[in-house]
Design a protein around this nucleic acid. Structure first.
Lengths: 150, 150
DNA sequence: CTGCATCCCGCCAGATACTG
DNA sequence: CAGTATCTGGCGGGATGCAG
């Protein structure tokens, strides 16, 4: 995913590899730094991961509890996302070798640092979901609806 | 077909089953119905959208400036993402009918509410990208290479 | 400068079935 | 309960070329 191609005439093979060679240090350094962290951002900001992280940040949660909390997620996706989060050190997976298997997931300290921001995001999403829906409808209407459209 | 939107709809990180708006989205609509918030979350948290929103929240930005700021993004993706953000009412696109076309993008008030949280996310990503990389390497080492070394 | 169109590949994600 | 395996399809997204 970290491929880059900004029309640099460097002729870097589009294949993978090709590390960043252009260094633009300016007032927007924050944004420019995204390249290395886009990957991390992408992981955290994935559709379900935000909800998952919020859930596991509130204490140990069992697999089934998560499945119920995240309405609409498939078991496969839940498993996959949890694995990825675990791999990135954001979630700790604890297996209790009991008869009915019991597995608990919990956020690591590092992940808990995000709790506040994540909560802010979700609450924002709730507050503005109507506005967004309206804006979309309006946009679609003006872009495609008019008499001569298309 | 000369619609403004080519194919993407963003709103989806990567995959996420992207909520396609074009025409048929019934298959995925059910998820949004049960949990509308997830839908909005998905739109905002797409791979590049966080970085884009941060950038446009700092003032009017021209297309090329964004392209340079978001190291690694392709022109296509930038255009597509900007269109979607505009459609969702998060970004305002202003075209100046000058000879060399000039277009500026700016975040709407609604989008600016996210600035703080988004910045928190990106700064977190910067601060912990190494930890994440390390955790990942460690995980991969114990999970995929148990036979070698050690 | 800004943006659209097209080809194409790979990953994400859903559905379904099987296991400890 | 808690996954794993597999098939399939769609979207994300890169590369390239053309246009206003």
């Amino acid at each position: 995913m970290s491929r880059r191609n900004t029309e640099v005439t460097v002729g870097a093979p589009q294949g993978v590899g090709a590390l960043q060679d252009t260094v633009e240090a300016s007032a927007r350094a924050r944004v420019e730094e995204t390249c290395p962290m886009v990957e991390v951002l992408g992981r955290v900001s994935a559709k379900w991961n935000i909800s998952i992280l919020v859930a596991v940040s509130e204490g140990p949660v069992r697999f089934t509890e998560l499945e119920r909390a995240l309405v609409g997620i498939s078991r496969r996706m839940l498993t996959l996302n949890l694995r990825n989060l675990e791999r990135d050190g954001l979630v700790v997976r604890t297996v209790y070798p009991t008869v009915p298997p019991k597995v608990e997931y919990e956020a690591t300290p590092m992940a808990r640092e995000l709790y506040g921001s994540l909560l802010a995001l979700t609450s924002w999403a709730e507050r503005h979901r109507e506005d967004v829906t309206l804006a979309r409808a309006r946009y679609d209407a003006t872009a495609e609806a008019p008499s001569a459209a298309r």
